[in-house]
């Protein structure tokens, strides 16, 4: 007689699985990767490939030969880490630096905690911050590659808008003087050519954001709460002293703000799971980022802000409970 399957309900399952969700994140990152290749040419492609391959390889080796657990590289999570890491470093970063970053990201920040789903901090950001502290010169050299698809590029070298502002202010200039000297315009911020591969095009990042929302991969709470906090918090400071503090739109569109708020802060594993918690988490990131940008030593602070808030996630999850159905019985 035929042996039937028996199990407790439910007997069917939805279409979503970890792999598809992660793949959707990779797809959402593709416009950004495409823009970076358009701007920086093959070096951007090279960086992306090195990041992805290094992360996947590190995870494979650790899972298979050190932990001797099931190898889960097929779930695209290492691919995302690799891509994000590559998008977060300057375009002229040597390949071996990126490999070191990948080893730290996957080996230290992810696999030591027990692999996918267990890590406390966003692996890509841990990798990036490790590189930033270990290789400060390489990690802040924002000069563009010498050639793009064989064309000579007008070799902008030097600093990102955030860096320029920081340096200018340190030299005692006012913001309007700095702006005048460097010809800043908002249009340029939407599609700048300075910064890491993941920072250059706000539009490509926003396309990715819309895709993630439409596919219901992420919920908008964290991202919007970061944006809202940044606008309000930096807005207040800007209104107090527009010569000293940068304006909200500038803060939103420059640096890693969009990449961080859309792709890094929303990482499932290292963000709260419930809407109220997501909003608190986002507010924390927004405030810390602006504090670092305006008062800190680094021109950019979103990586640190996300990592700091990552540490609070278990606490937020503990205290922010979803809205329960029905009132408490008396």
């Amino acid at each position: 007689m035929k042996k039937l399957l028996v199990s407790p309900s439910p007997h069917i399952h939805g279409k979503e699985n970890t792999r598809n969700l992660m793949r959707d994140v990779v797809i959402a990152l593709l416009p950004t990767v495409a823009v970076s290749i358009y701007c920086f040419g093959l070096s951007a492609l090279k960086l992306a490939l090195v990041g992805v391959l290094a992360c996947v390889a590190v995870e494979y080796v650790i899972a298979k030969y050190m932990l001797k657990t099931k190898v889960t590289v097929c779930d695209y999570s290492a691919v995302i880490t690799g891509l994000l890491l590559a998008l977060n470093v300057p375009i002229n970063t040597p390949w071996w630096v990126l490999v070191i970053g990948s080893i730290v990201a996957i080996g230290v920040a992810k696999m030591t905690f027990g692999g996918l789903g267990q890590n406390l901090f966003n692996p890509a950001l841990v990798g990036r911050v490790f590189l930033l502290i270990s290789f400060p010169v390489i990690m802040t050299d924002w000069s563009t590659p010498a050639s793009t698809f064989g064309f000579e590029f007008d070799g902008v070298s030097g600093a990102t808008p955030l860096g320029i502002v920081k340096e200018g202010l340190a030299q005692g200039m006012t913001l309007s003087q700095i702006y005048a000297e460097h010809n800043f315009s908002y249009a340029e911020m939407l599609f700048t050519r300075i910064g890491s591969a993941g920072e250059i095009s706000a539009i490509a990042l926003l396309i990715g954001f819309v895709y993630l929302l439409v596919r219901r991969v992420i919920r908008p709470h964290i991202t919007l709460s970061i944006w809202g906090t940044v606008i309000v918090f930096s807005g207040i400071m800007w209104l107090c002293n527009p010569e000293q503090f940068t304006d909200p739109i500038f803060n939103l569109l420059t640096g890693g703000m969009l990449l961080g708020s859309i792709f890094m802060a929303t990482d499932y594993v290292t963000s709260p799971m419930e809407p109220k918690g997501m909003i608190i988490f986002g507010m924390g990131i927004g405030i810390i980022t602006i504090l670092i940008r305006e008062f800190g030593a680094y021109p950019e602070g979103i990586s640190f802000a996300i990592l700091i808030m990552n540490a609070t996630v278990p606490l937020i999850n503990m205290f922010c409970k979803p809205k329960r159905f029905g009132k408490e019985a008396k």
């Binding site: 007689m1 042996k3 039937l4 399957l5 028996v6 199990s7 407790p8």
Partner: peptide, 19 residues
């Protein structure tokens, strides 16, 4: 001999509570 295949949570408690 087995008469069917259990496909639920792999604990005795769950299995024996089910059937």
């Amino acid at each position: 001999p087995k008469t069917n295949i259990y496909d639920g949570v792999a604990t005795c408690a769950a299995k024996s509570a089910l059937y």
